Amino acid sequence: MLVVVIAGCEIGFWVVLAAGLLARYPLRMRRTGAALLLGVPLVDLVLLAATVIDLRSGATAGFPHGLAAAYLGYSVAFGHSMVRWADERFAHRFAGGPPPRRKPPHGWARTRYEWVEFGKAALATAIGCALLLAMIALVGDPDRTAALTGWTARLGLVLAVWSLWPITHTLWPSKPKEPEARGRPAQRARPR
């Protein structure tokens, strides 16, 4: 049942976000759009409440509970940037706003970008692990929460793999591509 709630919250996140942006730009209802966008984090609270209620009712913590903690961590850490990403695109499309920002293609700007994204992933991992530990403490029964301990290792593994991108860009920063020669290259004269 909790997996259905997680899926519903993911769908709800995008539905509330889209409704807020539609109200804000095409319908030009700024206050309604802002109120809907402020409601996006409420979707996370629904998932948190469902998880706590499930555990308090005597359920044995399993894969869905760990997934809920991971989802909440990533939603909190990346939610604001996802809303900003969507807002920039809607503003450009429907309100004549500037073109959306893109991630830097190369150089130290790209390296900084990758480290910032890694920082968000580290925050997501910290939040997810804190929620897992809170669930373990809430239940207070190691037999019922054994599955949650494994989730801390999963989140740590995801973070370790994620760290490869900023490390790679730090050690070998990408360079701009060479501009192609204009026109066709000069052909060599063949010996006769």
Score class of each variant (00 low, 15 high):
Ala121Ser: 13
Glu10Leu: 11
Phe13Val: 07
Leu36Asn: 05
Ala186Ile: 05
Ala134Ser: 09
Leu55Asp: 08
Ala130Lys: 05
Ala153Pro: 00
Trp108His: 11
Asp141Asn: 09
Thr149Ser: 05
Gly73Asp: 07
Pro179Arg: 10
Gly66Phe: 02
Arg188Trp: 09
Ile167Lys: 02
Phe90Trp: 11
Asp54Ser: 14
Thr152Cys: 13
Arg89Pro: 07
Ile136Ser: 04
Gly12Tyr: 07
Leu148Asn: 07
Thr152His: 09
Pro173Val: 06
Arg182Thr: 14
Val116Gly: 00
Val16Arg: 12
Ala70Gly: 09
Arg154Thr: 11
Ile167Gly: 03
Phe63Ile: 11
Ala91Ser: 15
Ala23Met: 12
Gly79His: 06
Val3Gly: 01
Ala77Phe: 04
Leu36Ser: 00
Leu45Met: 12
Asp44Val: 08
Ile53His: 13
Arg112Phe: 14
Arg184Val: 01
Trp151Asp: 07
Val52Gly: 08
Ala137Lys: 08
Tyr25Arg: 05
Gly128Phe: 04
Pro142Glu: 03
Arg112Leu: 14
Ala35Trp: 15
Ala86Arg: 11
Trp108Pro: 00
Ser81Met: 11
Trp162Arg: 13
Glu10Arg: 04
Val76Met: 15
His92Val: 06
Arg56Thr: 13
Ala49Cys: 11
Ile136Ala: 02
Phe13Arg: 04
Ser75His: 12
Met29Lys: 13
Gly62Ile: 05
Glu180Ile: 13
Thr152Gly: 01
Ala70Ser: 05
Cys129Ile: 15
Lys103Trp: 14
Glu178His: 06
Tyr74Glu: 01
Ala146Gly: 06
Pro179Val: 02
Ala134Tyr: 05
Pro105Lys: 07
Arg182Cys: 05
Leu159Thr: 07
Pro64Met: 03
Ser57His: 13
Ile136Asp: 02
Arg110Phe: 08
Ala124Ser: 06
Thr149Gln: 12
Pro26Val: 10
Phe118Trp: 15
Asp143Trp: 10
Ala122Phe: 02
Thr125Ala: 01
Pro185Asp: 04
Ala86Lys: 08
Ile6Pro: 00
Ala186Ser: 10
Asp54Gln: 10
Pro191Cys: 01
Tyr113Glu: 12
Ala153Leu: 15
Ala124Tyr: 00
Leu131Asn: 01
Ala59Gln: 12
Phe78Asn: 03
Leu164Ile: 15
Gly119Trp: 09
Gly20Arg: 06
Tyr74His: 12
Met135Val: 02
Thr145Pro: 08
Cys9Leu: 04
Thr168Met: 10
Thr60Gln: 15
Arg30Gln: 08
Ala86Trp: 09
Leu21Asp: 02
Phe94Cys: 08
Ile136Met: 02
Phe13Trp: 15
Ala134Met: 01
Ser163Asp: 03
Ala34Ser: 15
Ala35Gln: 10
Thr32Met: 08
Phe13Tyr: 15
Asp44Leu: 12
